[in-house]
Design a protein around this nucleic acid. Structure first.
Lengths: 244, 244
DNA sequence: ATCTGTTATCTGTGATCACACATAGCAGAC
DNA sequence: GTCTGCTATGTGTGATCACAGATAACAGAT
């Protein structure tokens, strides 16, 4: 029987220090750029659910041909971040109550796992970054006129710093994909105005999370995160703006 | 303030029964076909980790131009089912031990959720289908010369019938994406020969799972599934064929 | 014989074009 | 005024081409 071992990565350079000494050239394609831009658009909640896109329109907006846009859009569609209708039209997916509730359940499972793992694997710099985001969010809330968009941004940074600390790259990508899907409705959330930030209890869960993280108490970190996810979801559901 | 409600789906046909009486025309593009074919290739484990593909090669094999292949490949790359190297070459991702272990953790979380939910939502036809798959797998194992590939197929059908019963479409898609990633190594698993099917304890976990499912005992279903996933993972890890 | 620099071929990327389908706008009939 | 059918425009899909970078084969030097 022939060798069953899996193929190895290609051989490295002769001088191993050489690669470290000069920054690698990252050639990124136009499709990558468009992909990243659209991703940012969705994550920041600057695209409303149901909004339609045309390939030529996007291409013109970015200043390229339709080709890179096609590739970027099909990638996003594969992640459920965009939707291609049977008519072949492409739009930001609608968010029904059922879909939102399912996403919240999946997020609890995956982000809970990431949070608990982060409690084990976070190093000093991870903790510092998480602390920084937590303080920024809390500070924004304390302001006389809190900026909803800014708070939402700090909230996202806090969550992703936590998930990054778990050092599970595949899991991180999957969570990012989930946030891509809820991005368009988070938009509606902070449009609710400053009282959302002021009145919410997110800062309480954040504080509990950070505290448990420093104690390296995985289950407690997970618990605090789940409370955060669940409460934010309840707020959106209670607003009654999701169809179905 | 303007209307905050989300856009609705387009209006339906005037005669609501008409749509039901004539099977809808599904126009599927070449890109969809290529996507489905490549997916099947990976899921069935007929592609080895590290194997390289060229767009033109795939296009010639299927009898189309490179264009639909490009779209299919970029979709699969977005799901981590394929990998584009910095050289822009596309290959089946390598499976390191770390990656395998991370995937097993994520699978436990997601498939555990699906299993527990299925216990609540499964209807009679779901149960029947799951029973059928379980019997087929057990029967294959009892044979004097069990067919590893066939057993693996029944195993997959059993798992997916269970996950489908949870009625969580997004979760189902994510699990499918995970299986797409482990498909290439499952191949190596059943290549281990009939003793893998015979000696394994998969049938025990399957039986426990089905039994718990009929009792609608969600936690028990999850527990049986986790045992199945964990044990199969241990077997592959113990073979020592995964690099890193 | 081994290594290095060159050249030829191949591969992915992106632009452009042709085609089929979908949609919207408009005119005519009732 | 409302409905039906046609027409014009727009859109996604897929093929083809040009180009830059990568890979591999090869020749010359040491």
């Amino acid at each position: 029987m022939e060798d069953k071992s899996l193929p190895e990565d290609p051989a490295q350079a002769l001088d191993p220090t050489l690669g470290d000494r000069m920054g690698k050239i990252v050639r990124l394609t136009l499709a990558d750029t468009v992909y990243r831009d659209l991703k940012e658009l969705l994550l920041a909640g600057r695209a409303a659910p149901g909004e339609r896109f045309t390939l030529r329109g996007l291409a013109a907006a970015i200043g390229t041909s339709a080709m890179p846009v096609r590739e970027a859009v099909s990638r996003l569609a594969a992640e459920n971040a965009l939707e291609v209708l049977p008519n072949r039209a492409v739009r930001v997916p609608l968010m029904s109550r059922a879909r939102f509730i399912e996403l919240r359940l999946i997020r609890s499972s995956l982000e809970g796992l990431a949070a608990e793992t982060a409690a084990l694997n976070a190093d000093a710099s991870d903790l510092a970054e998480i602390n920084r985001c937590e303080r920024l969010f809390a500070a924004e809330r304390e302001k006389p006129r809190p900026d909803g968009a800014a708070a939402m941004h700090f909230n996202k940074d806090l969550h992703f710093a936590l998930y990054r600390a778990a050092r599970m790259p595949i899991l991180f990508g999957m969570i990012e994909s989930l946030w891509l899907q809820i991005g368009p409705v988070l938009n509606l959330d902070f449009q609710a105005g400053p009282e959302r930030v002021r009145g919410g209890e997110a800062h309480i869960h954040h504080a509990a999370l950070v505290e448990a993280l420093h104690r390296r108490d995985g289950p407690a970190v997970r618990q605090a995160l789940l409370a955060d996810i669940w409460h934010a979801g309840d707020f959106i559901l209670s607003r009654g703006i999701l169809p179905d």
